[in-house]
Design a protein around this nucleic acid. Structure first.
Lengths: 242, 242
DNA sequence: TTGCTCCTCACGTCACGTGAGGTGGC
DNA sequence: TTGCTCCTCACGTCACGTGAGGTGGC
């Protein structure tokens, strides 16, 4: 005429572990025991358990449930906080899911920003790494603009730069710097934000400059770095030319 | 010309703890160290960290990220599983939030089923406990019907039953049983599901019968139990009359 | 004897967060 | 000396889940 732990768990729609855990947390009274030590639950335990489960399913922390139990009822402000937290969590998960859905749809490498799948198809490792850094530095609007820019076909100079051997001779470097300088000038004209990238992002100009300097130093070979240095000097986009 | 742990964490938009944790889980290479043991991070570490963070933010478990890292790219099935899990979690949280919103709006005691706030206003503790058990046993449609039933004003017999003293005399018991029997007959007529309650719920008829028997035995006083026994016998709704 | 249910520790989960206790350079 | 940053263990978090090792009745 009483219930075992398994039975009361079943009646409350939960598990044996959960029931034992609630005993440990003093959320559920210990029932009488039989001569063999088995617990004998009564209706009042079931009611207590159902109450606790109801609050737990509403997302209330167990510690708070204990307080509610003592006070008899839970305060509306507490519940409103819970609801607000839920709304926030839901919004975050939805945005994650949408992001994930876009990645799946575009069949892009997961680690690239969404939408950059086709664009990064035949990029060098260095350029992909740069892309990850851009994604962190630039504001969303800038990333969209960047993607559109990258959708245009590469110029011959850009292709040559990507494959530039570390020991390329001075003449080639100079020619590349001039032609890339032309590209860059047009880019600045058409996309003025590229003159001050990351202005809407999370970092200061100083941080961005140092980050890009380090990225260039580590990701490109000496000849490429030399070209970038020549390129930067006449344009004056950043101060670290020499 | 290198970054400290704090700096790389800041650049990647995360915390020092997280960076150290990723070292421990072999998700991030250990950088060289200075003579004082301080870590000196380079661009390749930042890129590695950004990749891991991106996957982690998509909800991928760290262990799986390690595998992706080895394979170079994550499989579409894995991502689809993640997306499906997210969708499920979101749905569950939304239903919880809606439930919570209803509770807040009705200003009802939290542990009662939603919508039963006003109805349970002046119920006895026993009846509230029964309500919790009903909420567990009955199907949603039955709960709605029950709520509508409870919105009707109590009959005189019902009020008398709730306050029946344990030593009420035989005549009173008999009269109450007759009148409540009338109430019950009308209820069965108007709400046929009350003849077989919980048919759409999670329990078998046998389980429900035993549960109600125990609940009555524990929640009501001897006189009330006697009335219920007299009431049940002629109606024959359940077999356990004597 | 075998199977089944029950019991009580004690430890594991997941992705970090939080001290505790110590070092090195200004 | 004081403050600041960095370091490495080791343990805490939250709500349980999972054995390990043992008991009792058929």
């Amino acid at each position: 005429m009483t219930w075992s732990t398994r039975e009361i768990a079943h009646l409350a729609g939960t598990t044996v572990s959960t029931v034992r855990h609630y005993h440990q947390e003093n959320l559920l009274d210990e029932p009488d025991r039989g001569p063999n030590g088995y617990k004998h639950y009564e209706v009042r335990h079931l009611v207590q358990l159902l109450r606790v489960r109801r609050l737990a399913e509403l997302g209330m922390p167990l510690e708070q449930i204990a307080a509610v139990d003592a006070a008899g009822t839970s305060s509306a402000p507490q519940l409103r906080v819970l609801a607000a937290q839920l709304t926030e969590t839901i919004a975050r998960l939805e945005s994650t899911r949408d992001d994930l859905t876009r990645v799946i749809a575009s069949a892009a490498p997961t680690d690239l920003p969404p939408g950059f799948g086709e664009v990064a198809e035949n990029m060098s490792d260095a350029d992909r790494a740069m892309l990850l850094i851009y994604a962190r530095v630039l504001a969303p609007a800038e990333m969209t603009a960047l993607r559109e820019m990258l959708e245009a076909p590469r110029t011959l100079a850009q292709l040559a730069f990507a494959d530039l051997p570390p020991d390329a001779d001075d003449e080639l470097r100079e020619r590349l710097a001039r032609e890339l300088g032309e590209d860059l000038r047009r880019t600045h004209e058409r996309h003025p934000w590229t003159l001050d990238p990351g202005a809407g992002g999370p970092f200061s100009r100083e941080e961005i400059r140092m980050l890009f300097d380090r990225a260039i130093a580590e990701l490109y070979n000496p000849a490429q770095r030399d070209v970038l240095a020549r390129l930067r000097a006449p344009v004056g986009a950043a101060g670290a030319a020499s």
